[in-house]
Design a protein around this nucleic acid. Structure first.
Lengths: 239, 239
DNA sequence: GTGTGAAATCTGGTATATCAGATTTGATAT
DNA sequence: ATATCAAATCTGATATACCAGATTTCACAC
């Protein structure tokens, strides 16, 4: 048992530089985890392919210990499956990606619903401000800016929902990275569509329309997800 | 690259006993993971409490290696948080539990929606049969049987949805164990309520009413989840 | 040629050792 | 008494060693 935010500080510059390194410094296992995750999601492993711990350790130039830990994380994320005493195999293909999109849609719509119920004045103003900036970025066609604003937009909704667990869970359902997101934001049609959806979502949340926000968010995630699927896997499917 | 289900078998009794042990045999890390998970969900650790790898290893009478792996799994599940180079702390309290219920509601309703769209004749018949058996078990008041049927019911829906990733994800959002489930099924009022909801869900899915199934499932998970919350944390909250 | 089974090999699971960052302690100066 | 800083200590992160289950190899019997 221990208190979380023990406030006894004798250092002078306590407030200014509060324990920065803590969450930024990288450990080998996190590097391996991140790298492997990206590789799997980028399709650089075949579904069903076996991965060998010693090989990976050699490739990364590290021991098997951090490899094992990274594999446990990937296993819990559902990207690989561990067969006891027989190793781990890759579990990712287009249908898995589809389901990740559906999971994200379900969770983001739930969190949007809660955000609409729980948002306060400050959050409302900020969210609408982000939506406004998106409008400008869309007009000017700044793809990089849009990618960043997109993240900010969803982060604001997560914060407004006051949900920690759900927000964390949603993070794990993302299978396309910034570079892919950038590509899609280069298409004017998609940009416009995305803008309209974001505006509608922001409006619904700001006005406290929980059910509307939920529905709009779900449709937005599914639709944009399908667009990504089409790019990443080169096919278009309806769900 | 390797083929998944290589069919070359020369052994005679191939079909009869297909690799039973594989997924049943327990490794130390899984035992630790399961035990720790149950302990955390049962509230046997305070939120924010630090856990020490060496202590755990000693308590379990094992080395730190499987402990580390189990902690990585718990971390990915969101039940503990790893502070790089500073250890892991417990992340579970009633609000975390609430969010787990909401996550499950979001995911189960999504999967119910898909099940309604994708279920076939065989699945339809089986699902309705399970619902029928629940009716009988409810009448006879067999709590153990109800707990089991409850699981079977949801499993059938998962199977009908043809979703693998979503089904796995849902499993991780369960924070009450069989013993607690049993307690709740002893209450006649809850039993009746639960029966009605299950029947309605089965009906909606069987008749292909995707939106209805989705809504009914969501409400069912949230409502029954709140009942569990009340038991486990001794309070009743609306969401 | 085919099925059998034991030996060799591979590979994941576990234990132990070592390293380094983080925390605590305590002596010292103000 | 309090702030400072370095030594001692703690503990997570990594590396290495070893064991046992799983797979493969291959000689042998039918």
């Amino acid at each position: 048992m221990e208190v979380e935010g023990s406030l006894k500080r004798s250092n002078k510059q306590a407030e200014s530089f509060e324990k920065i390194g803590a969450s930024f410094q990288m450990t080998v296992r996190d590097h391996v985890h991140r790298t492997m995750r990206n590789a799997i999601l980028a399709g650089r492993f075949a579904a069903g392919e076996k991965v060998n711990e010693r090989n990976l350790a050699e490739q990364f130039g590290v021991s098997t210990t951090p490899i094992k830990e990274a594999l446990r994380q990937l296993e819990t994320e559902g990207l690989v499956e561990a067969l006891p005493r027989r190793g781990v195999v890759i579990r990712f293909d287009s249908s898995w990606a589809e389901e990740m999109i559906l999971a994200r849609a379900a969770l983001e719509s739930m969190i949007a619903h809660l955000a609409a119920k729980r948002i306060d004045e400050k959050g409302r103003a900020e969210l609408l401000a982000v939506a406004e900036r998106m409008k400008e970025a869309t007009a000017s066609g700044d793809a990089d800016c849009l990618v960043e604003l997109n993240e900010t937009f969803h982060e604001h909704i997560h914060k407004s929902s006051q949900c920690g667990y759900l927000a964390k869970l949603i993070e794990r359902q993302q299978f396309y990275d910034a570079s892919i997101r950038r590509v899609i934001h280069l298409d004017p049609t998609e940009r416009q569509k995305s803008l309209e959806e974001h505006a509608a979502i922001a409006g619904a949340i700001a006005s406290g329309d929980a059910d509307g926000a939920e529905r709009l968010m779900r449709d937005h995630v599914v639709r944009s997800g399908e667009t990504y699927l089409g790019i990443v896997f080169g096919k278009q499917e309806d769900i």
